[in-house]
Computed example of a mutant assay.
Amino acid sequence: MEKTIKTFKIISTLEAISFLVLLGIAMPLKYIWNLPEMVRIVGMAHGVLFLLYVAGAVYVSQLLNWSIKKLVIAVLCSVLPFGPFYVEKNYL
C-alpha cells in the first residue's frame, strides 16, 4: 500500500508540473510566438498524466477509504494548476 501511495504522489506531482508547464510556457509559445510544437508534446504528456492521476485517485481512494466527497475534491483538483499539491498535502 505504501508503494502505491508513493507512486500516486509521483504521478500527482508530475501531473501538476506538466499542467503548469503547459499553461506557463507552452501556451504562451503557441499564442504569442506562434510556436505550437511545445503544446503538442507537453499537452500529450499532460493528458496521459491526467488520466493516470484520475485512475490513481480512484484506486487510492479505495485503499484509504476516502469518502465520495474527498474523491470528488481530488479529481476536481486535477483541473486546477496547483490542485494536486493540495491533495498530496491534505489527503495523503
Rank of each mutant, 00 (worst) to 15 (best):
G83T: 03
V42I: 14
L23D: 05
L14F: 15
L20C: 05
V75G: 03
L22G: 08
V75L: 10
Y59S: 14
V58Q: 13
L23M: 15
S61Y: 03
V75M: 03
L49C: 05
A57F: 02
L64N: 14
G56W: 02
E2C: 07
Y86R: 07
E37S: 08
V48F: 13
F19D: 01
V48M: 12
N90W: 02
K70S: 08
V72M: 13
K89H: 09
T13E: 08
L23C: 14
I73V: 07
S78G: 11
L22N: 04
N90F: 05
K9I: 10
K69D: 11
W66L: 02
L64C: 13
T4H: 15
L23W: 13
I25N: 01
N90P: 00
E2I: 15
L51E: 12
V87N: 02
V42E: 02
V39T: 02
E2Y: 09
L20Q: 04
I11Q: 06
K89D: 05
K30Q: 09
V79H: 06
M27N: 06
I25V: 13
E88Q: 13
F50G: 00
L22E: 08
L22T: 00
Y91W: 14
V72E: 09
I17L: 11
T4L: 15
Q62H: 15
K70E: 07
V54M: 02
T13K: 13
F19W: 12
C77H: 00
K69M: 14
E37C: 10
S67V: 10
V72R: 11
L52M: 14
G43S: 04
P28A: 04
C77P: 01
R40T: 13
K9P: 12
T13S: 12
V87T: 03
T13L: 15
L71A: 09
F82A: 12
E88G: 07
L49W: 01
M38H: 11
P84S: 06
I25D: 04
A55Y: 11
I73K: 04
V42C: 06
T13F: 14
W66N: 07
V48C: 11
A45Q: 09
K89Q: 00
